[in-house]
Amino acid sequence: MFCEKAAEMIRDLQRMNEGQLPAFNEDGLRQVLQEMESLYEQNQTDVNEAKAEGRADLIPSIKLRHTCLLRNQRCVSAYLYDRLLRIRALRWEYGSVLPANVRFHMCAEELQWFSHYKKSLASFMRSLGSDGLDVTQDVKPPKSLYIQVRCVKDHGEFEIDDGTVILLKKNSQHFLPRWKCEQLIRQGVLEHVMS
């Protein structure tokens, strides 16, 4: 049956729940495009024959192949679009620098799109207020400026606003400005300790 490969790509993507990004299925995409090409060519020969010899009986077959072409188009567009949604989410969850194992799963065009997205988000944030506003901060309304955090893993040295450098060592606890550590908490380096 036609369009099996395209459906398989969608199924693989759907199986990765909670917005995880699977490796870009370049091979699958190429196979789908090849199938579309051969469907198109077969349709062209049949259309020419139907026109030249007036064979109206070929029309149902042409329509069937055309439906398959549209289906493949839908699957591929949905595949690429859903991946973009996932990549966009990564910017909000990880911050502007992605870890290598995540970047590894993206194709060249997606990396390019990500950097464009990063840039437009940054210029939007700069345009807000008098000197910019980071909209990825304070997703939950803050109750205090400083919070108690505990390190979940070794992260190395970390500099805060007043120039003090602190060492983020596993299991050490610190009292830090909230806006400085929000991203590290989201990345799972620090843990917010509630008293």
């Binding site: 969850e93 995540v102 939950k140 309304p141 908490i185 990345q187 799972g188 843990e191």
Partner: peptide, 19 residues
């Protein structure tokens, strides 16, 4: 009273589990 606690993103945690 945990609603204001900042938590690690589930996406990040899932990635780590898989690693």
């Amino acid at each position: 009273g945990q609603a204001s606690q900042l938590t690690a993103s589930s996406l990040v945690l899932n990635y780590r589990k898989r690693k």
